[in-house]
Amino acid sequence: MMEQAPGTRQRVDVLRPDETPLRVWLHRLRQSVVAGFRELRRSRTSTIGAAMITFLLLVCLFTPALVTHDPIKTNYRERLAPVSAEHYFGTDKFGRDIYSRVLVGGQRTITISVLAVAFGMVLGLPFGVISGFYGKAVDAVAMRFVDGLLAFPGLLLYLLIVTLAREWKLEGFWNDLILVFALGFAFAPQVARLARSTALVEARKEYVEAARVMGERNIMIAFTQILPNCMSPIIVTGTVRLGFVILIIAALSFLGLGTSPPTPDWGADLSAARDHMESHPMIAVFPGLAICFSVLAFNLFGDGLRDLLDPRLADR
């Protein structure tokens, strides 16, 4: 499946010898984006997903304008208030405006997820590419290390990293970077493995040989030629991963290892709402829906993307 990644199809038209690598790269990027949009319209799921993601990103972008209340200001006299013109989504057990909390929390959650996935890619991609490109001893050593990390079962790696990082004296947004670090670090081995398997295939292809003949250094070939071609499966995995990361953050919040209160956080707010789920179920509805919506968006989009990038399934 990997050997038919679409990057190969777009390659021929950009190899002009007078171009600098950066411009080549930018050109390719532009091309693939344009092609991507053309392709996107062919898949219904990814169109829906893309629309949902666009909505999410717009809301995140305009959060400061949309927020109606200070999301951490408490007022016990108005606690557990129902939906009203004053509080669009009602108030939580401390009398905080849920609408504002969902917005600000969303901005945070989406930012953390995107950064975490990006961090995992930045860490894992070069690792995997080098491992796959050089092969042999480098590969053997690097992959055993990756295997060692992948053997870490389930949530336990996150639990350990988050517990470990809790004590670092970090405040505000920097505190969220702990989650970025933990979630990204745990994603990196998967990226590395995926990149490596693509790189193994790519390294044997003719264009690599051609680049060698043209006298490019090995490391340059690995990063300028092979790495871009490993991107597409990783982008798909990354998109689906975004949704997964949101759920992991929620699970960590449930276990008490999320961000410290009163920072708005979908997972923590949903988790706190479970105390009142029999008497005031409305508190849970909006953070819960927000989580479902974004996970769904990333999954739909990622799924559609996978179908598009995998030509065998392209007819759907």
């Binding site: 951490i72 200001k73 408490t74 016990y76 401390f94 209160p261 009163p262």
Partner: peptide
């Protein structure tokens, strides 16, 4: 935890 959260808000006030 909850008292801490509330006290935080009171101190900000």
């Amino acid at each position: 935890r909850n008292s801490g959260e509330l006290v935080h808000s009171m101190l900000m006030e």
